[in-house]
Design a protein around this nucleic acid. Structure first.
Lengths: 142, 142
DNA sequence: TTATATCGTTGGTCGTGCCAACGATTATGG
DNA sequence: CCATAATCGTTGGCACGACCAACGATATAA
């Protein structure tokens, strides 16, 4: 959202504050990811692949919380960019085995750096104590 | 998002916690609004109309932070539901004058109740002190 | 009066998140 | 052993919030 002259009716409401804060955070994140040529889904899939090793698409979906159908599209992108390889599973011909490639791992490292920087930009208005408190409360809220 | 077995790489990151907490909050809100037959845009437009009185669509967009083109679609819905009336401005024939109707005001009152309840559901995991702190920190973050 | 600005509107795009259904394959239970 | 059920990848769709470009009509400025 560009900007707005805050409505009395929503101003200060937790749901509103959450959506504003999140919008700002996601904008910064989206920007950083965009500079690396990826979106959130790409990162999550790469992260899951590196954390769990080669897995089927269905399992990838379960571990990332991304719908099977969206996993397909995300993998299509990643395969084209050679960040991931997709091969039929010889033990179960229903499944594919998805593996992160070397370029994929390198991309992930770059994204890690970007991600860390983003956190700092997002939390910039808060001091260390406030940051810790916010994280604790948000985690409780989850 | 249905659920997921949290990735090490994102777990605990402010951007992630914010997005999770917001997703939960918006799901609850979306649900409550849905039961009343409206979406977020509808509420924001009604709220702005009641707060500022009859205004043009462009001004409605500025005050709500909603794009002009989306205002058009939102008003189309609201007009059909008789929650709002749209008439050409006789002083400036480029503009329309948008006014909230009686049914619109009644709807707004119902939405107010729902909105208040939603806040409580969203904040349910926190005690009063924590709620105040969260609100303060989120506002700072905005 | 000519140029510029604003208005409503149409018709897109994007990202995230869903859901239904299909053919292919594998597992399960009578 | 065979029928039924479950799972897989995939296609194609929808919702929602957010944004953008461009149009004709109208109004304001230089």
């Amino acid at each position: 959202m560009k900007d707005m002259a805050s409505l009395k009716r929503v101003d200060g409401l937790p749901t509103w504050l959450l959506s504003r804060a999140n919008a700002r955070a996601q904008a910064i994140l989206h920007d950083a990811f965009g500079r690396a040529g990826v979106r959130g889904y790409h990162f999550r899939v790469l992260a899951a692949l590196e954390e769990f090793g080669p897995v089927s698409q269905a399992n990838l979906g379960r571990r990332t919380g991304i719908d099977r159908s969206d996993i397909v599209a995300t993998l299509n992108d990643l395969v084209v960019k050679d960040l991931v390889s997709r091969a039929p599973d010889s033990n179960d011909r229903r499944q594919n085995v998805v593996t992160i490639t070397r370029p994929g791992e390198e991309m992930l490292r770059r994204l890690d750096v970007a991600l860390t920087e983003v956190q700092d930009v997002v939390l910039e208005p808060l001091n260390d104590r406030e940051r810790a408190t916010l994280i604790r409360l948000l985690a409780k809220l989850g």
